[in-house]
Computed example of a mutant assay.
Amino acid sequence: MKNALGKLDQYRLLQNHPLVHEHLPDTAEYTKENLVYFANRYPVVFIKHDTSGQGRGVYKLSKESDHLYSLSGYSLQGKEVDQVMDIDEIHKTLQPFERLGRTQPYIVQEGINSVSVQGQHINIRVHVQHVNGKPAVGGIYGSIAYEENGITNICRGAFAMPMRLLFFIFLKVKKDEQQDILNKLMEVSVAASEVIANHYPCRECGVDLGLDQNLKPFIFEINTTPGMEDFARIDRQMWEQIVANRKKMSDSTK
């Protein structure tokens, strides 16, 4: 049994679901050829290590000129990267030991323009739990990244907040439209979590999503061992709901 479900395996499972596949950015296994294809096709591309977490091994690629690209993000060791290089140099940065037959597993992913009205990058976390065989949304919050690399991981300095603040301050969404967006975010997250739970032994999923310029949700990735510490700071009621759900889940296994 696998210890972790990689990002590429997630994508392959999710793209077969009739609802969820409409909310997935184009994603492929990292190869130099796929990197070239994505870099030519999309204005922004994200390169992510297949199994790493906490924002490590995640890079944002954007075109600077005909042959040069900006690469920004964090290495697998957590070191910040911010350079302008050509594709050959980028590939060597990502796969420094390829000539020795040792490569790292990455994915390449279409960059979704999930930004606030001021241009800050936005991420939304939906915490889905499977209680007594049924999925339940324990909590949801938004986060803003102030860095240009667009990495919205809390461990990399992103600022987390309740959804009402994200809608009101950063997205300027009218109050009567907010619930419809929340409902769609939760619907897509629950459906995606059920797909993952049907193929991988997990009782909770942290679904990370963005919203494009039309406020359509797109799933970035799913964490099968989500933490809940951020909910304790952002919304005590949601944190208590997640704790209560976990207790029900534990009681059901006794």
Rank of each mutant, 00 (worst) to 15 (best):
G150R: 04
I151S: 03
T152Q: 02
T152F: 06
T152P: 09
N153S: 15
I154M: 08
I154N: 12
C155V: 02
C155G: 08
C155T: 11
R156N: 06
G157W: 01
G157A: 05
G157F: 02
G157K: 00
A158P: 01
F159D: 03
F159I: 07
A160T: 08
A160Q: 09
A160G: 05
P162F: 00
M163E: 06
R164T: 15
L165W: 07
L166T: 01
F167L: 07
F167E: 03
F168N: 13
F170V: 02
L171R: 05
K172A: 01
V173Q: 09
V173P: 08
K175R: 15
E177W: 00
E177T: 09
D180R: 07
D180L: 11
I181R: 10
I181D: 05
L182T: 14
L182S: 14
K184M: 11
M186C: 07
E187P: 01
E187N: 07
V188K: 07
V190C: 07
A191G: 12
A191T: 00
E194W: 06
E194I: 14
V195K: 15
V195A: 14
V195P: 15
A197G: 13
H199G: 11
Y200P: 15
P201I: 02
C202H: 12
R203W: 12
E204C: 12
E204N: 12
E204M: 14
E204L: 10
E204V: 12
C205K: 12
C205D: 13
C205S: 14
G206H: 01
L209I: 05
G210E: 08
L211N: 04
L211Q: 04
Q213S: 11
Q213K: 14
Q213D: 13
N214H: 15
N214Q: 15
N214W: 13
K216R: 13
K216L: 08
K216E: 04
K216I: 01
